[in-house]
Computed example of a mutant assay.
Amino acid sequence: MKNLFLFTLGLLLSFSASSQILNPVKWSYAAKKISKTEAVLYLKASIQNGWHIYSQNIADGGPVKTSFSFKLAKDYKLNGKTIEPKAIIKFEKSFEMNVSYFEKAVIFQQKIKLIGPQALVKGTLEFMACDDHQCLPPENVEFSIPVS
C-alpha cells in the first residue's frame, strides 16, 4: 500500500512539473518627460537566464521579431520609430540564418510628442522567447504607460 501511494505521488508530481507554464520574460514600463512637449517611453524586457527574445530587425523567414503597436490618441503622437540597443547576432540552425536577439534584459525606447500636459500611451507588443532547446509560441502583451 505504501509503495502504491509513493508511486501515485511521484506520478502526480511529474505531471505537475511537466505542465508548468513557462514565462521567461517579464515586461515593465516607464516614461520620462524630456521637455514640456516631448517624452521617452521605456519598455523593458527582463529575461530569465538561458532565454532570449528577438530584435525588431529580423529578416523574413526567421523567428517572430519583437514589435510594438501604439494606439492612436489625441494627447500624443509618435516621434520616430521604436529604438533598441545593439543586439547579439548569431547563426541559428533552426532558422538557418543569422538572427539578432537579446539576453538577460533589453530596454526599447519610443519618443513621443505630447499634445497636452499628460498622456496615457496604450498599445500591444509581440515577442517570442527561445532557449537552446525550444521556442515558446509568440505572445501578445497589452501595455499602458502614463506620462505626466
Score class of each variant (00 low, 15 high):
Met1Glu: 09
Lys2Phe: 10
Leu6Lys: 10
Phe7Arg: 09
Phe7Ala: 07
Thr8Asp: 04
Leu9His: 05
Leu12Val: 09
Leu13Thr: 11
Phe15Gly: 11
Phe15Ser: 12
Ser16Ile: 15
Ala17Pro: 05
Ala17Ser: 15
Ser19Gly: 10
Gln20Ala: 10
Gln20Lys: 14
Ile21Pro: 07
Pro24Arg: 03
Pro24His: 04
Val25Met: 01
Lys26Gln: 14
Lys26Val: 12
Ser28Val: 02
Ser28His: 08
Tyr29Lys: 03
Ala30Ile: 04
Ala31Ser: 15
Ala31Gln: 09
Lys32Gly: 14
Ser35Lys: 08
Ser35Asp: 05
Ala39Leu: 03
Ala39Asp: 02
Val40Cys: 05
Val40Glu: 10
Leu41Gln: 01
Tyr42Val: 07
Leu43Asp: 01
Lys44Met: 09
Ala45Pro: 00
Ile47Gln: 06
Gln48Thr: 13
Asn49Arg: 09
Gly50Asp: 07
Gly50Thr: 08
His52Ile: 01
His52Trp: 12
Ile53Trp: 04
Tyr54Arg: 05
Ser55Ala: 06
Ser55Asn: 15
Ser55Asp: 11
Ser55Cys: 05
Gln56Met: 11
Gln56Trp: 07
Asn57Arg: 15
Ile58Ser: 02
Ile58Met: 11
Ala59Gly: 12
Asp60Pro: 11
Asp60Phe: 13
Gly61Met: 10
Gly62Asp: 05
Pro63Asp: 02
Pro63Ile: 00
Lys65Leu: 10
Thr66Tyr: 02
Thr66Val: 14
Thr66Gln: 05
Lys71Phe: 12
Lys71Gly: 11
Leu72Ala: 13
Ala73Trp: 06
Ala73Pro: 09
Tyr76Ala: 01
Tyr76Glu: 05
Lys77Gln: 09
Leu78Ala: 12
Asn79Asp: 09
Lys81Thr: 06
Lys81Glu: 11
Thr82Leu: 14
Ile83Met: 07
Ile83His: 02
Glu84Leu: 01
Glu84Asp: 04
Ala87Ser: 14
Ala87Pro: 01
Ile88Ala: 10
Ile89Ala: 08
Lys90Trp: 09
Phe91Thr: 11
Glu92Ala: 09
Phe95Ala: 04
Phe95Gly: 00
Phe95Arg: 03
Glu96Ser: 14
Glu96Met: 14
Asn98Ser: 15
Asn98Glu: 14
Asn98Gln: 13
Asn98Tyr: 13
Val99Ser: 02
Val99Gln: 07
Val99Tyr: 01
Phe102His: 04
Glu103Lys: 13
Ala105Glu: 15
Val106Pro: 00
Val106Asp: 00
Val106Glu: 02
Ile107Phe: 05
Phe108Tyr: 12
Gln109Thr: 15
Lys111Ser: 13
Ile112Cys: 03
Lys113Asn: 15
Ile115His: 10
Gln118Glu: 10
Gln118Phe: 08
Ala119Pro: 02
Leu120Ile: 06
Leu120Pro: 01
Val121Asp: 03
Lys122His: 05
Lys122Trp: 01
Gly123Cys: 00
Gly123Phe: 06
Gly123Thr: 04
Gly123Lys: 05
Thr124Arg: 09
Thr124Pro: 02
Glu126Gln: 13
Phe127Cys: 07
Phe127Arg: 03
Phe127Met: 03
Met128Val: 14
Ala129Trp: 00
Ala129Leu: 03
Cys130Ile: 02
Asp132Phe: 10
Asp132Thr: 15
His133Thr: 12
Gln134Ile: 15
Gln134Asp: 08
Gln134Val: 14
Cys135Gly: 10
Leu136Thr: 03
Pro137Asp: 06
Pro137Leu: 14
Pro138Gln: 13
Glu139Ala: 15
Asn140His: 10
Val141Tyr: 07
Glu142Trp: 13
Ser144Tyr: 06
Val147Met: 00
Val147Phe: 01
Ser148Met: 10
